[in-house]
Design a protein around this nucleic acid. Structure first.
Length: 278
DNA sequence: GTCATTTGACCTAC
DNA sequence: GTAGGTCAAATGAC
């Protein structure tokens, strides 16, 4: 594919993702619409990454996507940087927005859980999502609105982190707007349910069944008893800098329509615009 | 004795 | 320098 054609296709895909995200932002109050939009956005972003990856692989590092964005080296010092043209700037802004959205909306997500006043402490709802968590830290948070409440955020990781290398984590913090509401921020998905470890394999069907039951219970909890608020709204903070860098490899998530859940996937493409690491 | 939690220290990004 | 996130030794519960 010719360079300009590749760039145009990528820009079109990114534009579509941006439009879908705007639509999502406007309809955050409508859960059904959000659910419908999310896989379309994830698909569009995924396609963009695939395009960029194949583009980059085909054209080579310095002559790849970013040369088509009219990025030109200002200096050939060990930390090469690029000065962007206006066209490149708008394109780069789009890429950066997608990156922010990937990080904020797909790698992590947040929901709020209303609990009774009986439940005290920053742990709040505890293990009510059906997963087993281990607390590994607690931190005081500045500027909390309710000084009487525990002004801290508790950090939990999946209890199967060691045995299954499960990366799932969550943060629990009392909401500033309503002390009876806890903000739960999740990072990464559970892999322990999808990849049973050695002890389950040795233990046979019982352990597998237990995991499946736990998974089902968790799903029922998520759908039923708790108040789903939505994913973190994407941020579109204006870019002030003339230069920017995108780290690589970059971890982002994808929406599995069949599973109805967010799945982590590793992007290992070349997205170093600034070549900062050279 | 084992395991989970607590909490101060440390690390890293901004 | 500061704040957020993580580590790991100490502590407590069973």
């Amino acid at each position: 594919m010719e360079t300009n054609t590749c760039a145009a296709a990528l820009l079109a895909e990114l534009s579509q993702a941006k439009e879908l995200l705007k639509e999502l932002e406007l309809n955050l109050h409508c859960l059904d619409l959000c659910k419908a939009l999310t896989p379309r956005i994830a698909s569009s972003i995924h396609n963009s990454f695939l395009m960029a990856e194949s583009f980059s692989t085909k054209a080579g590092h310095d002559q790849s996507l970013f040369s088509s964005l009219a990025l030109r080296p200002r200096t050939l010092t060990p930390r090469r940087r690029y000065v962007r043209t206006s066209h490149a700037r708008s394109t780069a802004r789009m890429v950066m927005e997608v990156r922010i959205i990937c990080r904020k909306s797909l790698c992590s997500w947040r929901r709020q859980v209303r609990v009774s006043s009986v439940a005290g402490g920053v742990e709040g709802p505890g293990e009510d999502d059906g997963f087993i968590w281990r607390k590994y830290g607690q931190k005081e948070i500045l500027g909390a609105k309710y000084p009487s409440s525990p002004r801290c955020r508790a950090y939990f990781r999946c209890a199967h982190r060691d045995s299954h290398s499960c990366p799932a984590k969550k943060q629990v913090q009392r909401s500033d707007n309503d002390p009876s509401v806890y903000d739960l921020t999740y990072h990464d998905n559970h892999t322990c349910l999808q990849h049973p470890g050695e002890e389950e394999e040795q233990g046979g069907a019982n352990a597998m069944q237990r995991d499946q039951e736990q998974s089902t219970a968790a799903a029922q909890k998520l759908e039923g008893e708790e108040e789903f608020v939505g994913k973190i709204a994407p941020s579109f903070a204006p870019l002030e800098e003339e230069q920017f860098f995108i780290p690589s490899p970059y971890q982002f998530g994808g929406f599995d329509e069949a599973e109805g859940s967010l799945l982590p996937m590793e992007f290992d493409g070349d997205w170093e615009i600034g070549l900062d690491s050279i």
